[in-house]
Amino acid sequence: TETYETTDETEARKIAEELKRRGLTFRIERHGTTIRIESD
Protein backbone atom coordinates (compact mmCIF):
# COMPACT_ATOMS: atom_id res chain seq x y z
CA THR A 1 0.00 0.00 0.00
CA GLU A 2 1.26 3.43 -0.94
CA THR A 3 -0.34 6.59 0.38
CA TYR A 4 0.06 10.06 -1.08
CA GLU A 5 -1.36 13.30 0.26
CA THR A 6 -1.44 16.55 -1.64
CA THR A 7 -3.45 19.74 -1.79
CA ASP A 8 -2.60 20.16 -5.47
CA GLU A 9 -5.21 18.91 -7.93
CA THR A 10 -2.63 18.68 -10.75
CA GLU A 11 -0.22 16.67 -8.63
CA ALA A 12 -3.03 14.33 -7.58
CA ARG A 13 -3.84 13.71 -11.23
CA LYS A 14 -0.18 12.94 -12.00
CA ILE A 15 -0.01 10.47 -9.12
CA ALA A 16 -3.22 8.78 -10.28
CA GLU A 17 -1.84 8.49 -13.84
CA GLU A 18 1.40 6.98 -12.54
CA LEU A 19 -0.44 4.40 -10.44
CA LYS A 20 -2.65 3.48 -13.40
CA ARG A 21 0.43 3.12 -15.59
CA ARG A 22 1.87 0.68 -13.04
CA GLY A 23 -1.37 -1.30 -13.12
CA LEU A 24 -2.29 -0.54 -9.53
CA THR A 25 -5.78 0.07 -8.23
CA PHE A 26 -6.27 2.96 -5.86
CA ARG A 27 -8.87 5.10 -4.23
CA ILE A 28 -9.04 8.84 -3.81
CA GLU A 29 -10.42 10.49 -0.70
CA ARG A 30 -10.93 14.18 -0.18
CA HIS A 31 -10.64 15.78 3.23
CA GLY A 32 -11.25 19.49 2.85
CA THR A 33 -8.40 20.76 0.68
CA THR A 34 -6.35 17.58 1.10
CA ILE A 35 -6.52 14.89 -1.55
CA ARG A 36 -5.43 11.47 -0.33
CA ILE A 37 -4.57 8.70 -2.78
CA GLU A 38 -4.14 5.19 -1.47
CA SER A 39 -3.10 2.26 -3.64
CA ASP A 40 -4.20 -1.29 -2.86
Results as ranks from 00 to 15, higher is better:
G23Q: 03
I15T: 02
H31V: 13
K20R: 14
T1G: 12
T3H: 09
T25Y: 11
I15E: 01
E29I: 15
A16R: 05
L19N: 01
I37K: 01
K14L: 12
T10E: 14
D8Q: 03
T33N: 13
R22N: 03
R36A: 02
T25A: 10
F26N: 02
A16Y: 07
I28L: 06
T3W: 14
R30F: 13
E29R: 11
G23F: 03
T10P: 04
T34D: 02
E5C: 14
K14G: 06
T7K: 08
D40L: 14
E29Y: 15
R27Y: 08
R22F: 03
T10D: 14
I35K: 00
R22G: 02
L24F: 08
E11K: 07
A12T: 02
I15K: 04
T3S: 10
T7P: 03
I37Q: 01
A12P: 01
T25P: 06
Y4R: 02
R13I: 11
E38K: 12
R30N: 05
E29N: 07
T3Q: 07
I35T: 02
Y4D: 01
K14A: 12
I15S: 00
E18K: 07
E17G: 08
E29M: 14
T6V: 10
H31D: 11
E11S: 06
R22Y: 03
R22P: 00
E38R: 13
R36Y: 08
I35M: 02
K20T: 14
E17L: 13
E17Q: 11
T33P: 09
T3C: 14
T7W: 06
R36C: 06
H31G: 03
E29D: 07
E18T: 08
T10H: 12
A12F: 05
E38M: 15
L24G: 02
E9Q: 06
E38C: 14
A16P: 00
T34R: 07
R13Y: 12
L19Y: 04
R27S: 07
T6Y: 03
R30H: 08
L24N: 03
E11V: 12
Y4M: 02
E38H: 14
E38V: 15
T1Y: 13
E5D: 05
H31A: 07
R36S: 04
I28W: 08
Y4L: 02
R27C: 15
S39V: 15
I28Q: 03
R36I: 11
T1L: 11
R30E: 04
E11R: 06
T1H: 13
E2D: 07
G32H: 04
R30K: 09
D40G: 12
K20L: 11
G23N: 05
L19Q: 00
T7H: 08
A12G: 03
H31N: 12
K20I: 11
E18M: 14
E9I: 10
T7M: 08
D40N: 13
L24Y: 08
I15M: 05
K14C: 15
T3V: 15
Y4E: 00
Y4S: 00
L19W: 07
E9V: 08
T34I: 14
T10F: 11
F26M: 04
R36V: 08
F26Y: 10
E18Y: 13
K14Q: 12
R27I: 11
L19H: 01
T3I: 15
L24C: 13
T7R: 07
D8T: 05
